[in-house]
């Protein structure tokens, strides 16, 4: 025990560095604009106020933005988990002509920065009549090259013997994928799920551009709209909004992260 005190010290320092901005954000959401701008800054709110939250929820349509964000993030996550694992499995375990070429193609798209394809994608989606709709918000992100890459690498690490055992026992190919192989990739699925959900939840530019009316806005877009003016910023509202935006992400993370470690322990034959 004597020699481990410094480990705790490092741990505590790291924790402070990570958690302090969060604490500042949460505390800041209960401060008035005047107090937030004061020098020197205060740590605890002097006169805690719920006004920022009241403003936030009275401003237009907050439940609607929340619903939009949730719907889009869940759909995109579900799509990525389904399709990326299917493609990843096919690229890793099934033998067919052009498999490697296909994989290289997927990898190639990973190299192109999203900003370059942004405008062409927007034109494409608009011409398909999906501007200002949920399909327009969801469809372009249903499958990501990164997800395919992640799942393929993970499937590659699983032994082929498991599939052979399934075939011997008379399972269908779909059964082998869904009942044997897929459950083994739980840690990869959890990682992909967290990353995709986060990415979609925080996405700003695409929803901003694709939404043509306010009722299709997602949380980050609405937050930017109401907290930032041309010349002045409402910091209190921004903090309160950020707290509301962050909570579901935290919950999501807590749900998924248990599987990340759990999965590793139960992986197959050795």
């Amino acid at each position: 025990m004597r020699r481990t005190w410094w480990i705790y010290l490092i741990g505590v320092l790291g924790l402070v560095a990570v958690a302090a901005p969060f604490a500042w954000m949460v505390l800041g959401s209960f401060k008035t604009q005047g107090e937030l701008l004061r020098v020197p800054p205060t740590w605890w709110p002097e006169q805690p106020t719920g006004q920022n939250y009241a403003d936030l929820f009275s401003k237009a349509n907050f439940p609607r933005y929340f619903l939009n964000s949730t719907l889009v993030a869940l759909a995109v996550t579900a799509g990525n988990l389904t399709f990326c694992s299917m493609i990843g499995y096919a690229l890793a375990k099934l033998r067919f002509k052009g498999r490697n070429a296909l994989f290289v193609l997927v990898m190639a798209t990973l190299m192109i920065p999203g900003m370059v394809t942004f405008v062409p994608l927007f034109v494409l989606v608009t011409n398909a009549g999906m501007a200002n709709s949920y399909p327009g918000l969801i469809l372009p992100f249903l499958v990501s090259p990164f997800g395919v890459f992640l799942m393929r690498q993970f499937f590659s690490g699983l032994p082929d013997d498991l599939m052979d055992a399934g075939r011997v026992d008379g399972s269908s190919e779909l059964g082998i994928f869904a009942r044997i192989m897929l459950p083994l990739t739980r840690p990869a699925l959890a990682t992909l799920g967290i990353l995709t959900f986060l990415g979609s939840w925080n996405n700003f530019l695409w929803p901003l551009v694709i939404a043509q009316t306010e009722n299709m806005y997602t949380l980050p877009v609405a937050l930017a709209l109401y907290s930032k003016g041309q010349n002045a910023q409402n910091f209190g509202l921004l903090m309160a909004g950020a707290v509301v935006v962050v909570v579901p992400v935290l919950v999501m993370f807590l749900v998924f992260q248990r599987h990340v470690t759990k999965g590793i322990a139960i992986t197959g034959i050795k």
């Binding site: 927007f122 501007a131 700003f204 901003l208 551009v209 930017a224 930032k228």
Partner: peptide
């Protein structure tokens, strides 16, 4: 008249994208 409020952040991006795709108000 339907008004769409646009956040100042990236409003310029929204306009230039819309000009490109001809989806302007």
């Amino acid at each position: 008249v339907s008004v769409t409020p646009i956040p100042w952040d990236s409003a310029h991006n929204k306009f230039t994208t819309a000009i490109t795709a001809q989806t302007l108000p």
